[in-house]
Design a protein around this nucleic acid. Structure first.
Ligand SMILES: [Mn+2]
Ligand SMILES: [Mn+2]
Ligand SMILES: [Mn+2]
Ligand SMILES: [Mn+2]
Lengths: 218, 218
DNA sequence: TCTTTTTTTTAGATAAGCCTAAAAATATTT
DNA sequence: AAATATTTTTAGGCTTATCTAAAAAAAAGA
């Protein structure tokens, strides 16, 4: 059985691995874990000893097959619990991450699967992130980003890329939520900012924000 | 913030304290925690340092006011989660303890209170144990024990005293569940065994079992 | 290429929570 | 009351996960 620390590392290594094909640097993992590089080295060597990561001294790290399976199981639990908190307990999407960070470590496959059933097998969590199935496979897609839409194209907001507190709070403030139908009115070439129409409200968002919004055409 | 180990100690010290007025021996605490007396001593000294127990070397231990408050908060979470698992996820009462043992450590007062609301403020967990309120107070009672009924008296089973795996499995086997109306048909003075009628079924249970069943007259 | 800087690893500490073995205190017998 | 047994505490070790400081390797710059 893995410790919470080991599980947290695996999950964040998985997240980093989603962003690049390259081997992950020890520094990038340490930064993600908000710890020191020496601590990360220790943990990577331990995980390598357990066959959960492929780690080569001074070269870099990636998840092994087995490590990825473990990571997906944790991601699955994290996203199911987030869904539970929002769908059943009335939390808002910017309040659930820290609690799910704890709940994702509860050990009981039966519990996870019954929770999944209780939630009626959701495909995405409240941030629009796909929920892996029992086998650790992600079947749903995350869609394309808003920044890729052209003027006059529209689609439905299905998720956010980096569900950081600040982004979620900002979206709350400007009244953008998952499910909203967003139409691109204008794109400013100078700074890639995007003016959109949402619920008959005209809003200009930065290119950075536009890159964080997943859209599904329709 | 308390560690899981500290929380587990507080909870079990509380449980032991329910059974006696006396100071608790280090040995009894060690046994309950399935650990060595030396480990218990370590922890008791730490908890004493934090003001959560009153501990006197070689004399014994009891919870302080503050320690009891912490313990009640954990008991509250444990019982609410057990209720959730049975009422919402379809677990049976003999399957939930180990999972609640983990869930009771989730840190979020908001979560606990919303779970309470979601479950519609249950007064008892699936084993018939009363659930403390937000202030750590137990309002509901546990009733009297079946062993105290006289011949021909009857009442409703509202809880079990020691919800051990073996007792719960045994009750499942002989078809006794919370809510059942039980009538005492005979009491054998030789060994205190009790013959009861439950759902038109006649069963003889040992005095030991009878002492573990909470009954509410009616 | 040879320095210099940056990254990564190693060495050595620390705190939590557990252990075993030994010592000290308390309780029980004779 | 003395001897013996039991309980409890202390001493010292181990593992996990973290840290700082120093050493080693790799990357960048002159
Ligand atoms: Mn976590
Ligand atoms: Mn999420
Ligand atoms: Mn526990
Ligand atoms: Mn219970």
């Amino acid at each position: 059985m893995l410790s919470q620390a080991e599980e947290n590392y695996l999950k964040e290594i998985y997240a980093l691995g989603e962003e690049t094909e390259e081997l992950l640097s020890t520094n990038s993992i340490a930064k993600k874990m908000r710890t020191k590089a020496s601590s990360a080295t220790d943990m990577l060597q331990k995980l390598a000893g357990k066959g959960l990561v492929d780690y080569t001294k001074y070269k870099g790290t990636r998840l092994s097959k087995e490590g990825e399976a473990k990571a997906m199981a944790i991601v699955r639990k994290h996203r199911l619990w987030e869904t539970f908190l929002v769908a059943k307990l009335g939390f808002s999407w910017d309040e659930v991450h820290d609690i799910a960070e704890q709940l994702e470590h509860i050990q009981s496959k039966t519990l996870t699967n019954r929770l999944d059933a209780f939630l009626e097998y959701p495909s995405h969590d409240p941030h629009g992130h796909p929920i892996p199935n029992t086998n650790g496979k992600i079947v749903a897609s995350e869609g394309i980003i808003l920044a890729d839409l052209k003027i006059n194209e529209k689609g439905v907001l299905v998720g956010v890329k980096n569900a950081t507190d600040s982004l979620l709070k900002y979206l709350n403030k400007i009244n953008i939520t998952i499910g909203d139908t967003i139409k691109v009115l204008d794109i400013e070439p100078f700074d890639d900012s995007v003016t959109i129409d949402n619920n008959a409200q005209q809003i200009t968002i930065s290119g950075n924000v536009a890159k964080n919004l997943y859209i599904k055409y329709r």
